Simulated scan of single mutants.
Amino acid sequence: MAFPTSSSRRIGVLCGSRCGRTPHYVEMAAALGEGLGLRGADLVYGAGGAGVMGAVSQAAHRSGAKVTGVIPHALHERERAVEACGEIFVVPSMHERKALMYRLSDAFLVLPGGFGTLDELMEVATWNQLGYHRKPVVLVNVQEFFQPLISMLDRMCEEGFFTPRERSIVKVADAPDAALDLLGLPRPAPVTQMAPA
């Protein structure tokens, strides 16, 4: 079941500034970034120029998406923000980074990452649960990266720590196109080739 289509299509992508152990993560991020542009969506991200974050932003920019990055002063050099693309906002703290990203985004896609990615995922899901916003959240479960977390969320629901409705806040897709479909972003029209005269 897809989320309702938003008239505004600013997609916040929460992900890591490292590449991961295998090339699958960066390849998937590039495919997702390209898909955003091809489907007429814009990207909001953490303004890092490296790793999964750099791959998704560069591909989105190349495919015509408007790209907006938000980064705190303390991470400006560490996450290679000088290599980041799009309009970049430098803010004083991580709290302000997250708050601005959440405000600018109409929905969230979560790609592989580390502690920061998990922190952002749990925060946007919690804000949904508490009614601070009603913005879709989708895990992109490439190579079953998030499978242990999905099992943990299911267990928390089974043990009564949240309801099935609250569990459904976090959706799961196995590939970039499936994730974009869940957000209700229209697929691009197929390109037809003219027959030779």
Rank of each mutant, 00 (worst) to 15 (best):
M1G: 13
T5K: 15
S8H: 03
R10K: 06
R10W: 10
I11M: 02
I11Q: 09
L14S: 00
C15G: 10
C15P: 04
G20Q: 05
T22F: 07
E27S: 15
A30K: 14
G37H: 03
G40M: 11
L43M: 08
L43H: 12
G46W: 10
G49L: 07
G54H: 03
A55L: 06
A60P: 07
G64C: 09
K66F: 08
V67T: 05
V70R: 00
I71P: 01
I71V: 15
P72W: 01
P72G: 03
H73N: 08
R78T: 15
V82L: 10
E83Q: 15
G86F: 00
G86E: 00
E87T: 15
F89A: 12
V90P: 06
P92Y: 08
P92W: 13
M94D: 11
R97S: 07
A99V: 00
M101I: 10
Y102Q: 13
R103A: 15
R103Q: 15
L104M: 11
S105W: 10
L109R: 04
L111R: 07
P112M: 10
P112W: 12
G116M: 12
T117L: 01
L121T: 00
M122T: 12
V124I: 11
V124S: 03
T126C: 11
W127E: 03
Q129N: 09
Q129D: 08
H133D: 12
L139M: 09
V140W: 08
V142P: 00
V142E: 14
Q143R: 15
E144C: 09
F145C: 01
D154R: 09
R155I: 01
M156I: 04
C157Q: 14
C157Y: 02
E158W: 05
P164L: 13
P164S: 13
V172N: 08
D174H: 07
D174E: 13
P176I: 03
D177A: 14
D177M: 06
A178N: 02
A179G: 02
A179R: 01
L180K: 02
D181F: 08
D181A: 08
D181V: 11
L182W: 09
L182H: 08
L183C: 09
P190W: 07
T192A: 11
M194W: 10
A195R: 11
